[in-house]
Amino acid sequence: MKQSPLLSVKNISVDFGSGRKKFRAVSNVSFDVYESETLSLVGESGSGKTTIGRAIMRVHPISEGEIIYRGERISGDLTPKAERLVHQKIQMIFQDPMASLNERAKIDYIVSEGLYSFHLFKDEAERVAKVEQALRDVGLLPEFATRFPHEFSGGQRQRIGIARALVMEPELLVADEPISALDVSIRAQVINLLNKLKRNKSLTYLFIAHDLSVVRFISDRIAVIYRGRLVELAQSEDLFRKPLHPYTRALLTAVPTPDPEIEKKKKIIVYKPAARSPDEPAPSWIEAEPGHFVLGTEKEVNSWLKL
């Protein structure tokens, strides 16, 4: 992992509201995403994981920090050229395939919308060819282009959502819980599709999820978020084998294991943030082991490492 990052999120904070009602949803978060890796952001609802994804997509403005893409700043005020870069090279896949497709538009238009906005085709023939290719890439038939979303099942709709992103020839896909709404058997199909596309098109994924069993299977690295702060970041297997932060440990034990024997013996850990006295040093982002980062004080991290 010596190469330079594709995406760098540097000390970003996102606030909602203003004045007395101001609420800090994301607070001083930094991480890098390297080319052709899958980095997952996991955390509970309200932890800010979706907000980070949307800040990268420029849906939410950030109040502090900056976001760098291929060495170029993509947060704050941008030149039209940089703006185009974000909207073309970074694409998003959404959670609910039932809600994220325009019910009144045909699949052809839904998949083409980005192409229209950026005039990414020479002529009509090229546009049609691009749409057909995108549909084929996600395992759908090109003739589906003339149909409406309601004619498709949840799994197929999610494929359409992926095709809509692919047609833009993106480099980075921000996938916000793309499989949470799908059934077990369909979920496996979509995971396999995402993995195949990653290999064939050398895509990079920023995966936002709460289902840790799926996250373990698909991610190279995992970042854990708690109340708007990153608390731990490590290689996927390192995180599962040796979680350091108490919140990560609570999260991992809470995931039900599909085996009645194991579940019977399970004891759940409830995480309560430790109260800090004012003379204690503030927690910092510490590299506890190579590539394994955790938020804590020097003393805390040493005690976690001994567990």
Binding site: S185, A188, Q189, N192, N195, F217, T257
Partner: peptide, 16 residues
């Protein structure tokens, strides 16, 4: 068989 816990990284998950 479709459980992600049974998946092997780098290989396809079993899918119905």
């Amino acid at each position: 068989a479709s459980l992600p816990q049974l998946g092997v990284k780098g290989e396809d998950l079993f899918a119905i």
